[in-house]
Design a protein around this nucleic acid. Structure first.
Length: 778
DNA sequence: TCTGCTTACACGTTTGAACCGC
DNA sequence: AGCGGTTCAAACGTGTAAGCAG
């Protein structure tokens, strides 16, 4: 899994205490996750690894508290998700469609940020399209090296990100496990969830600071090598400009293809008969909704007018709650208008961007936008109604008023409660509606609580909080803004059990955590469940959610592991780092790769073997300090299945939904491990050179790295663990990363000293990848 | 035989170099 | 020589279908 813990490896000097470690597959996860001596270690840690913010800093401080991200083409995504989004993956790499287009707000215009995209599995199941729906047919394949796509514009100022639509259209997906192009490697017939991470780059030389992760449940998709659901095919052809040729009026439409086929046969049988070849005379060019037309043709023709997508071929079952149902109130007309409005909005944005975007990369945004928007209008008429029953996503009632307390929070402590075989997906009200959420990450600004948001967050390895005892207020208000998604900012505990049944951390750790939580204004609510209090029977109660369990298309995954999610308060420059909460971790570990746009070839495919055993949660290995950095694991933050539908009523559908960083509300599943940040873990350091994946001569094999506790060697082992590195920069939760300015690249990362790309890296004008799974050479 | 993957194919879109005129 | 607009072809993106492998 992608874990930002990898970043520590990029840092220089002793600061990189968070060396990645791979937990032994066989080793009990709880052992490493909840070291008994966490408190002692924490105390032993230097107050802060980084210097406090300089006086001049204030002007540039980032309002982390209000970082928001909106999925611009949410409507389109929802269209697809209502049927069961499928993404083609090919050996050479295939772009995603719909593309991820979002708008960011709440960033400090003067600060630089890096945007990352990664895609993590939603569960441990493999799927098959049967009977018009997707069904889990077995366990997922071994996790592949995680790769991250870094937006080509990174790093860019907050003003840059906020001034345009951000698109990850150039990100490609592949099923080639040996891919050397840096594409994101995925398994076919598996379910995935894209995540977008906003990382503050304090300056050109530093990569660190606040991190915000955003997850849009509607962007979940199933990977396929060939489309299984005709509905998806139709939608893609309708909406993707590159597939115009397959539209009814295109030369590559089914009708035309059939005609060509017919001609082909005719030519063979009657070589001299050219009459049929004349398009002008051919009936082929005319719409023939006759009996001769195939069902697909009819379907395509009717798409625009179809009230809904419900069809036996759809991956969802009518009787089951549909995702759309919850999202879209039954207001057919209104919805249609809303959808249209959203499309218009998209178009407007595209136009605006086109006008203001400079040629080059910016153009891509416009292109993407255009691509995404094109065709969308065609669904306007049918979108609204369709949602009602045809959504492939299980509908989960979303509660408008859901608050932290209402969030589904598995009570780890009260494990006595039977865990549903299938972890409920939290489909926060987010889905439902609202586009914008206020980030709760801010300690200062109260955030309206949004109903549960998926707690997916990832965190860079963070230096141990110095004095932190003061957790920052994560959420100020419990007022639910049904329309906004909050993501938990930088909070992921490296050690989060993948299973809800996972043993709770040591009492010491818990107490510490609880204390922190209790002290936290916002956390107080959520902490209750953790303390053994049953989750409010409201909408969020597990039992309530179970019925709404998300079944991709219509199937309940049999082997979904509930993943705890840890939330961590955002780092406040003025305050000590907030305590780290445990984060949910995918059961399967994986190497992580980052794509760096514009990074020199030799640097583009950097790999950090970040693979961890099935249960291993990526974490930081503090060799010298024996300290587990808080929230280091990016990967851990996103549990395989973390969506749950709040049972309550759905908020009105909004074309664009946005997740907002939220903090605390999402602890739920991870609470038990929340203190992980403070826990000590002593994993033996591993010689990278001895690791297969880092051996240039050895071919990467995921299994080869699974048993290595640490992938990154200490840069300066000689330094006393107890000695904090000189504070050169203001403190922030992430490990600093030195970036070299590359005249040719907007994002230059001096990884040469750490890794040398042995692969035949290729420049990716649209973005580059840092392959965490590749084998670095020193 | 079935399922899933790879590949070639045709079509449309995008992009940038070449060309032209001012 | 420089600039701006247009043209054109290669590269790329897309879904389909045939063929292949397990």
């Amino acid at each position: 899994m992608l874990s930002v813990e990898m970043y520590p490896g990029l840092t220089l000097g002793p600061q990189r205490i968070g060396d990645c470690f791979y937990r032994d597959r066989e080793a009990p996860a709880h052992m490493s996750l909840f070291p008994p001596a966490c408190d002692m270690v924490t105390k032993a840690l230097p107050p802060r690894l980084l210097a406090p913010p300089s006086v001049s800093e204030p002007a540039t401080k980032t309002p982390k508290d209000d970082v928001r991200m909106e999925l611009e083409n949410s409507s389109l995504w929802k269209q697809f998700s209502s049927v069961g989004t499928e993404m083609i993956i090919t050996k050479k790499g295939r772009r995603m469609f719909p593309g991820l287009r979002m708008k960011l707000s709440g960033l400090n215009p003067s600060l630089r940020y890096i945007l990352l995209l990664d895609i993590v599995p939603l569960d441990n199941s493999r799927y098959r399209f049967q009977g018009g729906g997707w069904q889990a047919i077995g366990g997922a394949e071994a996790r592949l090296p995680d790769r991250v796509f870094i937006h080509p514009d990174s790093p860019a100022t907050g003003a840059h990100w906020q001034g345009r639509t951000i698109s990850f259209h150039y990100c490609k997906l592949t099923n080639n496990t040996l891919d050397s192009q840096g594409h994101i490697i995925l398994h076919s017939l598996h379910r995935y969830q894209p995540r977008v991470h906003v990382i503050e780059a304090r300056d050109v030389l530093r990569w660190g600071g606040g991190q915000h992760s955003f997850v849009f449940p509607e962007t979940q998709f199933l990977t396929v090598t060939a489309y299984q659901n005709n509905k998806i095919t139709e939608l893609k052809i309708r909406a993707n400009p590159f597939a115009k040729g397959f539209r009814e009026d295109g030369m590559n439409s089914k009708r035309q293809r059939d005609a060509r086929q017919k001609r082909k046969i005719s030519d063979l049988t009657e070589p001299l008969d050219i009459v049929n070849c004349d398009p002008c005379n051919s009936d082929e060019l005319l719409p023939l909704p006759t009996s001769s037309t195939t069902a697909a043709d009819l379907q395509a023709l009717a798409l625009a007018s179809l009230p809904q997508l419900t069809d036996p071929s759809c991956g969802y079952r009518p009787q089951e709650a549909s995702y759309q149902d919850t999202l879209v109130p039954e207001q057919p007309l209104d919805l249609g208008q809303a959808f249209m409005a959203s499309q218009m909005s998209d178009i407007g944005i595209s136009m605006a961007n086109g006008m203001q975007d400079a040629p080059g990369r910016d153009v891509t945004n416009s292109i993407n936008e255009r691509s995404d928007t094109m065709g969308e209008p065609a669904y306007t008429s049918n979108f609204a109604p369709a949602q009602a029953n045809s959504s492939s996503f299980p509908s989960a009632p979303l509660s408008h008023s859901s608050s932290f307390s209402s969030l589904p929070i598995p009570d780890p402590l009260a494990s006595s409660a039977p865990q549903p075989s299938i972890p409920p997906f939290d489909y926060p009200s987010i889905l439902s509606s609202s586009p914008t959420l206020h980030s709760s990450s801010s300690s200062s600004s109260p955030v309206s609580t949004t109903p549960s948001l998926q707690q997916t967050t990832f965190t860079f390895p963070t230096p141990p909080p110095s004095n932190s005892s003061s957790p920052q207020p994560l959420l100020t208000s419990s007022s639910p803004s049904a329309n906004t998604y909050h993501t938990i900012p930088e909070t992921i505990g490296p050690h989060t059990p993948t299973d809800a049944s996972f043993p709770a951390p040591s009492s010491v750790c818990q107490s510490g955590l609880q204390h922190q939580i209790s002290t936290h204004p916002v956390l107080t609510q959520t902490s209750q469940p953790l303390q053994g209090e049953g989750i409010p029977s409201g909408n969020n109660s597990p039992s309530d959610q179970s019925p709404a369990a998300f079944i991709y298309p219509n199937i309940l995954p049999t082997n979904l592991d509930p993943v705890p999610i840890a939330a961590q308060p955002l780092f406040n420059y003025n305050q000590p780092p907030a305590p780290t909460l445990p984060c949910p971790l995918p059961s399967h570990g994986g190497a992580t790769s980052f794509a760096f746009p514009s990074v020199p070839h030799h640097m583009q495919n950097l790999s950090f073997s970040n693979v961890s055993p099935s249960q291993a949660h990526p974490g930081l290995h503090l060799q010298n300090l024996s300290y587990q950095a808080p929230a280091p694991c990016l990967a851990a933050a996103f549990p395989p299945s973390s969506f749950s539908y709040p049972p309550s009523s759905l908020p009105p559908y909004q074309p664009s939904s946005s997740f907002q960083q939220s903090a605390p509300p999402t602890y739920p599943q991870n609470f038990p491990n929340a203190h992980a940040s403070a826990c000590t873990s002593s994993y033996p350091s591993v010689d990278i050179g001895s690791m297969a994946q880092f051996n240039p001569s050895a071919q990467y094999r995921p299994e080869m790295v699974l048993h290595h506790p640490s992938l990154l060697p200490q840069l300066d082992p000689s330094l006393p663990s107890s000695t904090p590195p000189p504070a050169l920069y203001p403190p922030f939760p992430s490990y600093p990363m030195r970036l070299y300015q590359d005249p040719h690249s907007s994002l230059s990362i001096p990884l040469r000293h750490l890794y040398r790309q042995h692969q035949h890296g290729h420049a990716h004008p649209q973005g580059s990848y840092l392959d965490m799974g590749a084998r670095p050479v020193f």
